[in-house]
Design a protein around this nucleic acid. Structure first.
Lengths: 222, 222
DNA sequence: AGGTATTTTTAGGCAGGGCTAAAAACAATG
DNA sequence: CATTGTTTTTAGCCCTGCCTAAAAATACCT
């Protein structure tokens, strides 16, 4: 059984590993909000348990075993997030912290029960893919709303779960997964956008638009 | 925030405190499956945090603060047990272990959500009372089935959650909270009983009957 | 009361995880 | 290529909880 701490390390490595080949000690330390030295030590322990490949000064990568645990933890996290919304009346800005704790005390039986109660869902409330029980992750190929040009029509896929405030803000604007949207105007000097969504025109800062991911439907010239 | 360990200590002290005035170090150690010495040390720490009153060689009692945490933990445990049965398809012999872990990662918000989803329930699936949000525990005054005489008619209140096997056994016999039962026969030499329950006659060993608690309805002479 | 038994506490260790400060390795640049 | 700067690792500590073995209190019993 991996400890809570180990699950957290593996989860963060998994996330940081997207794109990059090897994850540096300092990047991981920043991501976990821990001192670099603490991370160095833990990496040695994880390597000894066969969960990561670690060469001093060369960063880490997950082994198959480590990846398995990381993905399983991510699956539990996202199943809980959806469960909290669907069955316990939570809103999507309040679920991250709860799931962060619940994911570490979820047995295989409970994971299965959650999955069944939810009908084997593919996405969590933020639009993040829920890994399958076998560990396959459905990498949705979507692009940042911030990159779209005026006239573009797109379907919202995902709102990055970086901050509860962003989520509350997006929600008030009608920016939720599955909603449709059209870019009406783009101010070049600050990158902010005016978009039509849920029947109304809304303004989004570039910073907000950077955290919203969409699938392009049509690229009308404005 | 109390640690998981502290919550477990307090919960066990609460349980052992029923009846007895002070709880001894060794009784607590046995209950927690820990070495006596470990318990002694922890008691000093809990006392320093104001959660228990502890005098060397004199045993422990809970302070108001400690009792509050113990009762809250018990409440969360029992809410989870019922939730697992009602909303996640668990049977009552599989819920204890899950709840044992979930109770320690349950925020006040989650506790409230569980309570609401269940309609502020009074009892868990074993018939154990669920403490109120304010910490009041509904002490149900029931007696052991083992003590009833032939001819007695009673309503089942509670089946002690001591072992999953006992629970599965009781369930197969139709012995569940709220069911009605009549004692038909009692074999004095081993204390075993023949009872009528759910329309059929069933045999119970004295050991099983000792873990079933009932409320007497009528004491017919057999 | 005095001596044996039992309980409880103290002493000394260990593993998991974390921290700061100092040293070592790697990178980068004049 | 040598020096400065940035990462990363090592060294030495801390805290939480647990353990065993030995010592000290309390209890029991003749």
């Amino acid at each position: 059984m991996p400890t809570i701490s180990a699950e957290d390390y593996l989860k963060h490595i998994l996330k940081l590993q997207e794109g990059e080949e090897r994850v540096s000690t300092s990047a991981l330390a920043t991501s976990l909000s821990l001192a670099d030295a603490s991370v160095t030590e833990m990496l040695k322990k994880l390597a000894a348990r066969g969960l990561v490949r670690y060469q001093p000064y060369q960063g880490v990568t997950l082994t198959e075993k480590g990846r398995g645990i990381a993905v399983r933890t991510l699956r539990r996290h996202r199943l809980w997030e959806l469960f909290l919304v669907r069955h316990l009346g939570y809103s999507w800005d309040q679920i991250h912290e709860e799931a962060e704790r619940l994911e570490h005390v979820t047995s295989e039986a409970l994971e299965t029960a959650l999955d069944r109660a939810l009908g084997s869902p593919q996405f969590d409330p933020h639009g993040d893919p829920i890994p399958s029980a076998e560990g396959r992750v459905h990498g949705g190929a979507s692009s940042a709303l911030a990159a779209l040009r005026p006239g573009a029509v797109a379907k919202i896929r995902r709102v990055a779960d970086v901050d509860p405030e962003l989520l509350r803000h997006a929600d008030r604007l009608g920016i939720v997964p599955e909603a449709s949207l059209e870019v009406r105007e783009r101010l070049d000097f600050d990158g902010s956008l005016r978009v039509r969504v849920a029947g109304g025109d809304r303004f989004l800062s570039a910073e907000v638009a950077r955290h919203i991911f969409v699938e392009l439907v049509e690229e009308r010239s404005g």
